[in-house]
Design a protein around this nucleic acid. Structure first.
Lengths: 219, 219
DNA sequence: TTTAATTATTACAAATTTGTAAGATTAGAT
DNA sequence: ATCTAATCTTACAAATTTGTAATAATTAAA
């Protein structure tokens, strides 16, 4: 995700990233940046320190209260103080404008490599403003924590790994029982129902949407 | 992991990778390559197509029967046929010698980026010649599959994420119950015991080693 | 070699999870 | 607007998982 107000730079960056098999998203509404970031949940953020409405460092600080999404700070001034400050606010790396495309790509690769292997990115999936510990089967939102059972974990993980795509009932049944022609096809419905009730308890009433005759989708 | 017989190239590559925060391991014994690879379970393999004892392509083919570890093929001949063949044998990318260091780093970054985000790398951990589906809590070895319970999943995942390091009983208790001063400290011992029995059933009798007064270690 | 602390094993009861059945609701086709 | 197939809800019994306690085995220190 590119968080940057100069449109020419946004376009340049988008093209560069697309050509290297990334899927750049440009953040436009800075007034609601934090929510937007949490909603999209990008793999990495290129964050310009000088954006309108909100200071980049302040945004980073609030983001860090909810998320470990890797952030590379982008700034026009090359000062050691700036760099040190960015890192202390929770940035993963720091780069100055004008950037060298190759160097930028290498830094992105390095940050992703570093962050993709730690516990949190391997075992904790993020969905909006909640964190799903896939191993423990716990979902944390603010200070509330709920616990999922084995089948609920499988369903939620599957939906999360296919977010914004319709997932068929057969797919889910195969994920749980390794076969879709389960004796009682209602068993899935019941398990979905149980998961939904737990999600409702933490304020996600309409997270799992039914697409009749097609399947389910995690919004 | 570097699979290459020319020592000068090995040294060069190792230095390059170390300088970029990777942890290169050079494979020396080609006669037992497959087992060695599965034992080490590296994040990525640079595989020279012309190594002694075993043909690189054959090695890749046997590897793919057990593992999805990303592989970049290295060859001295630049032919489209070679490239197509490597990919068809299951390589993730292809590069020719002599390589440009920057390009190599970019390709490594690109391959890791691609592979780190798919289901198998996010939800399936590899341990020796078995695969642990962290979401379903199943361990597969050859054609045998065992199922772990919630606590066993937490313990095994924790040990796996701290492989070859001693893990204290307190750490494990905190991982399971969020607090180490659990009412009955024997509960952990019992759960370790249950996990060990299941691992024994698939031929991993001595995987979890006790380090008395210190904790446990996954070998 | 003996001793004491640490870790392992086993069986059991309580708690949780799961599938099932039976009935209620919903949405889309006619 | 009606009907029907698809999905949902609820309660219950069976199966699984879990912690506990009592006892056994092991290891490191004295």
């Amino acid at each position: 995700m590119i968080v940057e107000d100069e449109e020419s730079i946004c376009n340049e960056l988008s093209k560069l990233l697309e050509n290297n098999n990334y899927e750049p998203i440009v953040l436009k509404d800075f007034s609601n940046a934090l929510n937007e970031i949490l909603k999209v949940s990008p793999d990495l953020i290129l964050l310009d320190i000088n954006i309108p409405f909100i200071n980049g460092k302040v945004l980073l600080q609030s983001l860090r209260k909810n998320s470990n999404i890797p952030v590379i700070m982008v700034t026009s001034i090359n000062s050691e103080t700036s760099e040190a400050l960015s890192i202390s606010y929770g940035a993963d790396d720091y780069i100055t404008k004008p950037y060298n495309p190759t160097i930028l790509l290498l830094r992105i690769g390095a940050v992703l490599k570093r962050t993709m292997t730690n516990y949190d990115t391997k075992n904790v999936l993020t969905y909006k403003n909640l964190k799903f510990d896939i191993t423990k089967g716990t979902i944390k939102k603010d200070n509330i924590e709920i616990t999922l059972t084995k089948n609920e974990i499988i369903i939620f993980a599957y939906l999360l790994n296919h977010q914004n795509k319709i997932v068929t009932r057969d797919e889910l049944m195969t994920a749980i029982w390794d076969t879709a022609d389960y004796i009682n096809d209602n068993a899935l419905t019941v398990n979905i129902n149980r998961l939904r009730n737990k999600l409702k308890a933490i304020g996600f009433e309409k997270a799992i949407d039914t697409r009749k005759k097609m399947g389910y989708i995690l919004l």
